[in-house]
């Protein structure tokens, strides 16, 4: 099976929820494959967004490009609906002044239909997420 970036709108991924949004910097910017566009949080933490793959996938590696994110928690679900999330990964990121944080995570047990990214805290009043990519394979379609 072909390894692809599963976290792209062009691959069928969709952001189904984001707790904050500025019309000019919508959450779709996270999965458009362009790190120049971004989603911003708009005040206070935690803030979160949920990515739906619309199929069963197995993720092997995650790369998150962001700025000012401090503690990031990632939960996943293997349900057909965005429910039953369980904690998968939690990371404290390092602040890199003037350049994007580039967090690479090798994933274990990466079966998912949804991923939920929760920014628990940040290094400033606001944080941005420029891209999330999830390298892996599509396993099967959702059963109806």
């Amino acid at each position: 099976m072909r390894k692809v970036d599963l976290c792209l709108s062009s691959e069928g991924a969709e952001v189904v929820l984001a707790t904050s949004s500025d019309e000019k910097h919508p959450p779709e910017n996270i999965i458009d494959g362009n790190p120049e566009t971004f989603w911003t949080t708009t005040g206070m933490f935690p803030q979160e967004f949920i990515v739906c793959f619309h199929r069963h996938v197995r993720i092997e590696k995650l790369v998150i490009q962001s700025y000012y994110v401090r503690t990031l928690r990632i939960e996943k679900s293997t349900s057909n609906e965005p429910v039953n999330f369980e904690l998968w990964i939690e990371r404290d990121l390092v602040h890199t002044e003037g350049q994007l944080q580039n967090e690479e995570i090798m994933a274990h047990d990466g079966y998912a239909t949804y991923l939920r990214f929760i920014i628990m805290s940040a290094f400033d009043h606001f944080a941005s997420v420029h891209s999330v990519s999830a390298e892996g394979i599509a396993v099967s379609n959702l059963s109806q």
Partner: peptide, 17 residues
């Protein structure tokens, strides 16, 4: 003031790449 700060930060996010 808070909106002003937000706009400053967004400008900074733009300039990261």
């Amino acid at each position: 003031q808070f909106l002003h700060l937000y706009r400053e930060k967004v400008d900074a996010f733009h300039s990261l790449l």
